[in-house]
Nucleic acid binder design. Sequence first.
DNA 1: CGAAACTTATACTATAATAGTATCAGTTGC
DNA 2: GCAACTGATACTATTATAGTATAAGTTTCG
Lengths: 136, 136
Amino acid sequence: MKLLTKKTDYAVRALLRLAQHDGRLSARRIAAAEHIPLQFLRAIVQTLAQAGYVTTREGVTGGVALARAPRAIRLADILQLFQGTLDMTECLFRKKVCRNRATCVLRHRLLDIEHTVLAKFQRITIASLLKDLNAA
Amino acid sequence: MKLLTKKTDYAVRALLRLAQHDGRLSARRIAAAEHIPLQFLRAIVQTLAQAGYVTTREGVTGGVALARAPRAIRLADILQLFQGTLDMTECLFRKKVCRNRATCVLRHRLLDIEHTVLAKFQRITIASLLKDLNAA
DNA sequence: CGAAACTTATACTATAATAGTATCAGTTGC
DNA sequence: GCAACTGATACTATTATAGTATAAGTTTCG
Ligand code: FES
Ligand code: FES
């Protein structure tokens, strides 16, 4: 079971860097600091920018900056952005076994589990991670 | 996010079939009934047999049978059998950022989430699924 | 202007995990 | 002996994730 992919991982790290720096940083610098492949990070940054988590500026003085307060960026959101929502493996027994998909208990349980996971990730923000970091 | 893989899915379906039938069934029959590729199912059955969830018998009268009571087979166990335990994506900030891995809060949160998920899956058994099935 | 340092956008390759196939050997019962 | 089964294992295919490459446009500064 893998909860977070590299993209999510890298995205969070980049956001943390930006939160620490409190200003504009080029993708190159972030990549170097976090040992993230540059082009890979650039794609991630674009996704983050399109979703409104960061702003970017082109040109020599350009770079990336946080667009939201660290406490307003939840891990759950980043996770969904890069890993989408629950994929039901054809819903385990769809139609064939479970007659009415709408009320199927297992289906509900799976959805419930996803919600629980997301709820837990919602309580983790860039700000809370930052606090952790400094405490360590 | 995909919680269950095909292997887990198929394994559970096969176990359900066996629980319904309450006797010995050949892999071929199960595969046909559930539209599972035969050789794939056979490998799954072997894993289940090695883990003690089913017994098998060779020969023309052979086949597969449940080795445990349906209520004693938890989805969590099947899930772990086929999908292993939590994989930490290099633990998100290992060493580099999180100084002391032992106390790292995020790490704890991830482990906590895994435990929650497993706990929820532990409450789902072959018996409870069977009940669902009949209720529908 | 033109070079340096940056982002945008997209197309591509590589690696790994999952899913599925093929086969040969051995067992059981008629 | 042959039909119907499992054991064991090796192989291929498909998909998702991870990572690379590159052409084109932007901004600043000398
Ligand atoms: S309908 Fe999807 S698990 Fe029952
Ligand atoms: S040590 Fe793994 S997330 Fe902190």
